[in-house]
Design a binder for these strands. Structure first.
Lengths: 335, 335
DNA sequence: ATGAAAGCGCTAACAG
DNA sequence: CTGTTAGCGCTTTCAT
């Protein structure tokens, strides 16, 4: 293994000079720099991560805690994780992958050991037990998601309240009066995941304002569950002409069932989905949708974290504005 | 920050004793151990990761390189990643998440810096440019996937050849004579990802043996692409009664289109999918399928790696046997 | 613009 | 069974 000292000797300079060439923390004459860089290349030198971390008390690692469960839409998680990893790299950080499994212990372990310089938490619950630890941790953190109490925390999330409102607004504008909301699995609501409840909030309040009647039904993914849910919806509200779907694994089943029942989309019923664009575009009817900006969330989370690590940036709640894209699944209410 | 020395002082023992209590590398009297453990708890001590890594030249980190692309089935990737992370934890390792983006450079960086003790690579191509680096690296590694040349490497993968064979066998046994294979996106084949080609191999050779006529068509995901592909299939082989699908985002579109064309599943055509069980169960017709054992692959990869790190275990290719589960989408060929 | 040297916190011989 | 001690490879004052 090549060490800094060996590089220094090879280049005929002191160890500190090599270190400074690497960090750029003080000016080096062009010739020395070149000689050092040459030696580094010739010897194939790579700074030792452990030694660096010990001496600088900086690991250049960001911990990312992803949920263990897979009852929510996985591709979004993955997209966020990948965006976090790639953005982190552009700032010189690597990403440590933690699963929610260990819960608060993982937070203790990572913050306590200095394994990571900072952390990002996904899938935050309204009253998450990891939050107190984060508030008192030495390392900065960013949540992707929005807990009930955000004091002392930085959060990045899609504005799900506005998302809900936007969906209802779109349907109301098209003349729909009875709208059904196909929600996430019941477990998601029971867990009090923020985004599901906030979406509902937005849906309801805008429905009130626009005189739309709303029927909310949580729904497990899959065809069978969707069939049951749909039957109940039309049973309770036969006049339903609009659907808002916030459960990707219910999207295609819903479309299939509607087709099967002879209800044309968008002639007879309109469907608005809250899902990644890819899902909206690949569905059997190109879906009018509000997209979940997974990449942007991951990127923004890292950028806030890096700002904090650099002493810039303070606690803040960043809510990304939703954008609704009109596609083929929504149209005027049948009159 | 609490250090080992402080714990030692608090407990009235030497630093090394504390270290040995932690590592268990030499026997400690019950009373000393208790005193030390007590002090650790009282002071809230956490060993410093960097110092540990430097002194022991062991980071207790496993690097996991995931593909950046998302043209392949993401949930499988995620499931593997999570299985890797949780299994690694049970062995005292954390997981560093690398994206394929950096390519071979990431391998150099990680192995060179001692950031990780070992690595796991997913989405390995037949002639992957990272392989030479792995072979000469000081750290052990495991591939999830199977390259063309496995000498000096350890690989874990589903036996896709056997998987293909199993699918054809099932359909042949039911009397199907014309079988269409709906494959991954063309890009996947162009990239020479091993699993896609191996599946095809298995499909073809067993088709030959059983006298089945096979028609293979790569297919982008989504409804529109599937519609085009399906039309071509029935155009070329009107007598097609069996389908093998190896592209999760084509599964539901295929079922919807068949339904729409008045072809009943499984009465008129049978469908066998290669996909995670969850997809098979949630589809609009419960699918006969060969499941992709993502969790097991992740778990096995870590266990092999840990074995290598502990000086046990040698290079080896582990092919997991496929299992076909008969569900509602396959039945006797229409006579 | 460069060097010298003191640690960073821990592990692992070596010595009893 | 326990203590002493010499590093691990790097960063960062303090000098010059």
């Amino acid at each position: 293994m090549v060490t800094l000292a060996e590089v220094a000797q090879h280049a005929g300079v002191s160890a500190s000079t090599v270190s400074y060439v690497l960090s750029g923390k003080r000016s080096i004459s062009a010739t020395t720099r070149q000689r050092v860089e040459q030696s580094i290349r010739e010897l194939g030198y790579h700074p030792n991560a452990g030694a660096r971390a010990l001496a600088s008390s900086r690991s250049n690692i960001i911990a990312l805690m992803v949920p263990l469960r897979t009852d929510m839409y996985v591709p979004v998680m993955m997209e966020i994780a990948i965006a976090v990893a790639t953005t982190a790299r552009t700032h010189g950080y690597d990403v440590l992958l933690l699963t929610g499994e260990e819960g608060p212990d993982a937070v203790r372990r990572v913050t306590g050991s200095g394994l990571a310089d900072a952390m990002i938490l996904m899938d935050v619950e309204l009253d998450d037990e990891r939050l107190p630890l984060l508030r008192e941790a030495a390392q900065p953190s960013v949540l992707i998601g929005l807990p009930a109490d955000t004091t002392g925390l930085t959060c990045v999330d899609l504005d799900f309240r506005a998302t809900g409102a936007l969906c209802v607004e779109h349907l109301a504008g098209l003349g729909h009066r009875d709208v059904a909301v196909i929600g996430e699995a019941p477990a998601v609501y029971e867990r009090h995941t923020g985004f599901a409840e906030r979406t509902l909030d937005g849906l309801r309040s805008r429905a009130r304002e626009t005189g739309v009647r709303l029927l909310h039904r949580p729904c497990e993914g899959g065809y069978d569950a969707m069939a049951v849910t749909l039957a109940r919806v039309f049973d309770e509200r036969p006049g339903t002409t609009g659907f808002v779907v916030q459960n990707e694994s219910a999207v295609e089943p819903l479309l299939a069932l509607l087709r099967q029942q002879g209800r044309a989309v968008p002639e007879d019923v309109s469907v608005v989905a809250i899902c990644p664009d890819q899902v909206a575009v690949q569905a059997s009817v190109r879906l009018t949708s509000v997209s979940i900006p997974a990449q942007e969330m991951g990127r923004r989370a890292v950028e806030h974290l890096v700002a904090k690590l650099d002493g810039r940036g303070a606690d803040e709640v960043v809510l990304l504005a939703p954008e609704l894209t009109v596609r083929a699944s929504s149209g005027p209410a049948a009159s």
